[in-house]
């Protein structure tokens, strides 16, 4: 009897120990405040804050309104990464593009972009005019795509500093909207994000 009890306790203890050693993983609210905060990297929360502030500023500026009543056509140019990290600035540009499209103030083009077209299809389908497999009356004609009026661009700059065990990163998100007819920047704004962290006495 005693042997059985001891075995049971042993099995239970082992099971508990293994459970405790297992990975602790959970889903978090992507719009909440529970995400990891790092000093040197642009965390997902930083992208969200930069995008939201940029969108608010751009919508409030009124530069998207046209006197002729037509909607502006917006292309996404490049957002230069001048940080020390390998980051994909698409998180920022996609959020801004979607927000501006949903605002009803602009139409966005995927046929042209700073890093090449987002969607190659606009160009590809026009090559079908050389393909006798397709009914030529259904093939998209040349000269029908609409060229952009405005371009969104930007740059993300990082500056780091440290003092003792304290480390600090300053991220500077610069955003601009250019009127492609004149080449003039009709809107510019910056979002600044600063983060601090203290290194532990031992380790990293």
């Amino acid at each position: 009897m005693n042997t059985k009890i001891i075995s049971l306790i042993g099995i239970t203890s082992t099971a508990l120990l293994l459970t405790a050693c297992g990975p602790s993983v959970k889903r978090i609210d992507a719009t909440g405040n529970e995400g990891l905060v790092t000093v040197d990297e642009v965390d997902f929360k930083d992208w969200q804050i930069a995008a939201e502030k940029g969108i608010n500023s751009l919508l409030a500026s009124g530069v998207l309104n046209r006197s002729d009543g037509r909607k502006s056509i917006l292309m996404i140019s490049t957002v230069k990464n001048s940080t020390m990290q390998h980051i994909n600035t698409r998180i920022l540009t996609d959020k801004i593009r979607q927000a501006l499209l949903r605002s009803g103030k602009v139409l966005t083009t995927t046929a042209v972009g700073g890093n090449g077209p987002d969607d190659m299809a606009s160009k590809q389908v026009r090559r079908l005019e050389e393909d006798d497999m397709f009914n030529q009356s259904t093939v998209q004609k040349r000269g029908t795509a609409i060229a952009p009026d405005m371009s969104f661009s930007g740059e993300i700059v990082q500056q780091t500093s440290s003092q003792g065990r304290m480390r600090e990163s300053y991220f500077f998100f610069h955003m601009a909207l250019t009127d492609l007819a004149t080449g003039l920047a009709v809107w510019e704004d910056n979002v600044e994000i600063a983060k601090q962290g203290k290194k532990p006495l031992m380790g990293w």
Partner: peptide, 20 residues
């Protein structure tokens, strides 16, 4: 909305902030 997130803000005692 394409971007709706919790925005952090620091409020010093006695200070007035405007959330826009």
């Amino acid at each position: 909305t394409a971007a709706s997130t919790w925005i952090p803000k620091t409020v010093i005692p006695g200070d007035t902030v405007r959330l826009n």
